[in-house]
């Protein structure tokens, strides 16, 4: 059962460390975007600080979108997915493994570095811990949608643009809630209720998304 979850997860994480670019690319992307912000908006600390929650969350969302596109690419091209489906493994738990692997490889490093990036955007210090907490739950949801989108488009020749059209509307609530948590924290308002809503959504996504991902993998293999 969850044997396959552990197997997929360890396989993907090991693969990511063999190709460190997979881990570093999203971080470098976020770094470059953070650099662009003061260049576009101006260096005033007040302006940047006011927009920083939204900017951080939009950047995280785009980073997740970019990194998820290749999640199934290699395993689709080299036949690993075929092996997985014919093996009789539970595709539900395998899908959950892929989801968690994307979160480990792309989500967790981003959460860890988000404090640094946020302070570069002169986010007030009381916002930084809430930012990390909201990213913790939010990136899990982003990985769930992302894994679903990647599995449904992996067999298509031009999946890239389509992927953003499919994912961004679904990810609207995460952006709103995530940026809202940080905004409220900076304004000195309580955030426990919002964070628990986000955590609830993350758990819901973690439980339900693998059903859709498993079905999508089967469809993609048949194309």
């Amino acid at each position: 059962m969850s044997n396959v979850l552990a197997k997929v997860l360890s396989r993907q994480v090991l693969l990511a460390f063999r190709r460190p670019a997979a881990v570093l690319n999203p971080l470098v992307f976020v770094g470059v975007v953070v650099l662009m912000m003061p260049l576009g908006l101006g260096p005033e600390r007040d302006v940047l600080g006011e927009f920083s929650p939204g900017l951080m969350w939009i950047t995280a969302l785009l980073a997740s979108l970019l990194s998820v596109e290749t999640l199934f690419r290699g395993d689709y091209d080299d036949g690993t997915l075929e092996q997985l489906v014919t093996s009789g493994h539970s595709l539900y738990f395998a899908s959950m493994g892929y989801l968690l692997s994307h979160w480990c490889v792309a989500g967790i490093p981003l959460i860890l570095c988000s404090g640094l990036f946020a302070s570069m955007l002169s986010m007030p210090t009381e916002g930084i811990a809430p930012l990390m907490a909201s990213l913790f739950a939010g990136t899990l949801v982003l990985s769930a949608f992302g894994t679903l989108g990647a599995s449904i488009t992996v067999a298509l020749r031009r999946g890239g643009m389509l992927l953003s059209l499919l994912l961004l509307p679904l990810e609207v609530p995460v952006l709103i809630l995530g940026a809202g948590v940080v905004d409220r924290a900076i304004g000195g308002m309580p955030i426990a209720d919002l964070l628990s809503v986000m955590m609830g959504l993350a758990m819901l996504a973690l439980a339900l998304a693998p059903i859709a991902i498993a079905a999508s993998i089967r469809i993609s293999l048949e194309v």
Partner: peptide, 15 residues
């Protein structure tokens, strides 16, 4: 955009 996503996905598949 949700509608357009469904429509675009349908168009993207050959089968």
């Amino acid at each position: 955009f949700l509608y357009l996503g469904v429509y675009a996905l349908y168009e993207a598949y050959d089968n």
